[in-house]
Design a protein around this nucleic acid. Sequence first.
RNA 1: GGCCCCGUGGCGCAACUGAAUAGCGCAUCAGAUUUCGGCUCUGAGGGUUACAGGUUUGAAUCCUGUCGGGGUCACCA
Length: 592
Amino acid sequence: MNIQNTLENTVIDGMKILFEVDIPVIEFQETRKEFEGDLTIVVFPFLKFIKGNPFEIASKLGDFLKENSNEISDFNVVKGFLNLTISDEYYLHSFDRINNTKNYGIKKIDKNEKSVMVEYSSPNTNKPLHLGHIRNNLLGYSVAEIIAATGKKVYKTQIINDRGIHICKSMLAWQRFGNGETPESTGLKGDKLAGNYYVKFDEEYKKEIASLIAKGTSEEEAKKNAPILVEAQNMLRKWEAGDENTVSLWKKMNQWVYKGFDKTYEELGVNFDINYYESNTYILGKNIVAEGLKNGVFYKKEDGSVWIDLTEEGLDEKIVLRADGTAVYMTQDIGTAIQRFKEFPDLDSLVYTVGNEQDYHFKVLILILKKLGYTWAQHLYHLSYGMVDLPSGKMKSREGTVVDADELIIEMTDTARSISQELGKLESYTDKEKEKLYKTIGLGALKYYILKVDPKKRILFDPKESIDFNGNTGPFIQYTYARIQSILRKADFDYSKKIINMPLHQKEKTLIKLLEYFKETIYNSALNLSPALLANYTYDLVKEYNSLYQSLPILGNENLEKKILRTQISNQVGKTIKKSFKLLGIDVPERM
RNA sequence: GGCCCCGUGGCGCAACUGAAUAGCGCAUCAGAUUUCGGCUCUGAGGGUUACAGGUUUGAAUCCUGUCGGGGUCACCA
């Protein structure tokens, strides 16, 4: 219950009594800094319901509110804007409520609420995770946490693309050139090892193409007929037929890769509740296609392939089953979605965290499921995000021009280390604690940098220059948190007393207002699937706090009650930073 | 070419989904701080929100068109 909700009914009643009209929604906004007041009602929209001069309407409403509402101590009118001044008592009361609410803003999981599944990461098993995955992981994890904070049970999931020609390429190259190398024998992470052989495959493939062309084959033919590629395709067929050797090699290499992924996920601080594997799900959906064929959602072409016609919806025709009866990407996704809703009867909606190059795919997927008559299909969301580009151009894992996830994390930690060492403040820390802190700061910088941007927008990432520690950054916010902890450590008096009556400074009011707004921000972020809203809120809060910190004494105040209140505010700001960052997947240090 | 996304001071981002003089950070310049951590704070300069129309009392936001950037139109996943 915030001030707007509190006032809304009074305003509606007021308009009814004063002008005999029903106003359906009242539009509130923050009063701009250059005007007097805390909260503003925009009167212009009322003109649709009553004729009259906006200034007069606002004035009359102002009088009414001052008279009939305890929260409003004063008002003024500028054009059609009714600026309300909220009483100090209300602020103190509201602040007290925040202090007395355990975990203000975070709702406990409510069993009556429906659950949400968030899918993210979903890697291929032939190469290590890279910068693009980092954005995906951070977004998916954070959105899942944010939704959970609104009281819904959330299942985090990934679908691991563990089968297909890509993994066969790695397998084949390892078989040919690997000399029995293992992660143990080389000391390499398993995903790196597999990735190296994927690159190796591509090199060999290119060599073979070149030599075929030299012998007079056309480029197109060469690309299709290079022996190593034919061999890889052959391997995929053997895998699908269940050939023992192939399957056991596949299992072995995938295990290596999973171990590597787990390490990266752990470093990154993300996790999953359930994993799905493409090798188990790629056949799913075939029965659904058969059913859809019967009731006319799909149709069969002469060659036996099955399609859906979406031209009426302004889209194309889309294949859902190959002529030879094998499944395509879409078949699998149809099946997997249905299976998930079967496996989790409490599930209400499903969020797919996937790059925007797949916008079309998900549009079609959702449409197909709707056409098949699944009511939950209207609760499927594609959390689409823009690419992460490098100054040098696009990342290509085949060519090895990627920013590797593990390396980037190490690089960030190194940067944090060199900056922290200059600053000191860590005398009492052991080396181990220091290392942990450097990681907290380095990862904090990286995560915040990526999450503060609207997911839809693409990011140009310059690993050398992009990460800043000043301004709107993770470390800046972490620094403020650490400083607040320092104040609280020094506060050697009891500051638990409730302050009821005291004239408030404008900065105190602004902070209380912002603290109150935390809850709404979480809901907004969840609704928009956008951690960026929460990240920018946190920055605003911190900036406002720093401004108070700089200009007003906290512990040094002579008035005991002021001292108590400001310590309480500091405490609450600290808590809010911590909670908010937790939802973003970012740690916060006690000292730095 | 069809469809989708993006275009905001030199650079990087905001704007509660239609409201007051479009905010913030970096960079630049000028200041503050005997005191709670100077990775701080205060202030200045810098924008016709790509362009052209339209709707509206009111548009960065909605509609139409143009230009620029990206994506996608695979019986790959």
